[in-house]
Design a protein around this nucleic acid. Structure first.
Lengths: 226, 226
DNA sequence: AATGTACCAATCATCCTACAAGTTGGAGTG
DNA sequence: CACTCCAACTTGTAGGATGATTGGTACATT
């Protein structure tokens, strides 16, 4: 075992401490953090050192500085920003496929692990979804639809899976609204959601996987022939 | 449509330019980048500004600076580092499940899209894998095995899927070597790999999905009962 | 009262100099 | 040749100076 002369620089130490404050929620998202002058005193470092630490977190997407105003907490997850930037360069189809991969597995796992609370939550979202469809309220439908899908992934009880899925879903949600313009989509979605929920309730992983594959495939076909 | 009154700071401009140099491969991984003094002249900014940009990329994991020596390119992908950090906090089972999700879908897509070159490549890896198994060469087997799996994902022809998979696979590869200590694993793996390849060759997505599910499930059972 | 103007304070952005500390290679010495 | 030592180069840290942006306050104008 060789010892790496890994003495952390002051900048990294400060950055780590601030990062921890954010990830632990001690500094909430949206909150204005103390000024550079105060933080210099808090961490007992020079202005340069502090600024290098702050800038590292700004670039990572955790913070956002504005001249004259101050610095605020922008996000609590560095992975989010890295994923978003990477996905910007990807085609919508590629993102959709990854989303499908994650959601299919999530549905299967949800069928195995779903709790009573999960089922109740899913039931509620479906009812809201149907209600929105009846009222022809597009925005409400899209919103509830996304909540339903996310709830399935959450029922899979795998935080990494959920975090990745959330980004894929959000990335494609805007394009979904375009495809939903057709009335028939309302009924189709509501119907298959009901079947999917039943499969999860009955702990039938295979059927759950199949239903997810079915409706995402339909979405992708619309995407390609648009 | 609102305007984003977003004037980029000098630091962000410099950081973006350096980031691009790295991602485009103009600065290769492992290479020593010019000293701060030279970069100050190149970008025509002060040392503070330059250092804040450098530090942002160091924190993101793209660069690595050492006092007295210089700064080298550490990685060409910011997403890699963010994913690695996130996965450190995850359980091995969670990571495995995500890997399974990605690999199953990859196998299905590979069955649809595989080219003649893909099939030839997979064939080669299987032969190498069998050869290593015969020789009881554990290291060679693990290595070839990983190459085989990655080649399948590459045949799926989805860069985002591949990038995510690569990290999940690398993260769990070390733990796999522990499980492979049992001789029976050699034969099992080689056999099911052959079947998987046949499914992909015959463009049978369903069977391909099933086989992947089968052997990863076996791996996960060993993982849980260890 | 509503509005426009001048001013001020807080804050971040950029630049500058100076010195500390780690690394390397070469001059000098034995 | 082998060794020591130092000068030069590199990144790390400190502190100060100035500019730019924002938000608020006081005051004059209409």
């Amino acid at each position: 075992m060789l010892k790496k002369t890994k003495r952390l620089t002051l900048v990294e130490q400060v950055a780590s401490q601030i990062e921890h404050l954010i990830e632990s929620g001690h500094w909430e998202v949206g909150m204005k953090i103390p000024s550079e002058a105060k933080l210099m005193e808090t961490f007992d470092v020079s202005r340069n050192t502090l600024r290098e630490a702050i800038k590292a977190l700004v670039h990572a997407g955790l913070l956002e500085s504005k001249q004259g105003k101050g610095t605020i907490v922008r996000s609590s997850s560095a992975l989010s920003v890295a994923l978003d930037r990477r996905m910007e360069k990807m085609s919508l189809v590629d993102t959709f496929e990854v989303r499908l991969a994650l959601e299919q597995k999530a549905a299967a796992l949800a069928a195995e692990r779903r709790t009573a609370a999960d089922l109740k939550q899913l039931e509620t979202y479906i009812e809201n979804s149907i209600e929105a469809a009846k009222q022809r309220d597009m925005d409400a439908f899209i919103k509830t639809d996304l909540l339903f899908h996310k709830a399935i992934v959450q029922a899979a009880d795998n935080p990494l899976l959920y975090e990745l899925y959330e980004h894929m879903a959000d990335a494609v949600s805007s394009s979904i609204s375009d495809m939903m313009q057709v009335d028939s989509m309302f009924n189709y979605e509501a119907g298959i959601h009901r079947e999917l929920l039943d499969a999860i309730r009955n702990q039938d992983s295979e059927k759950a996987t199949t239903y997810v594959n079915e409706y995402i495939t339909v979405l992708m076909q619309r995407l390609e022939t648009r």
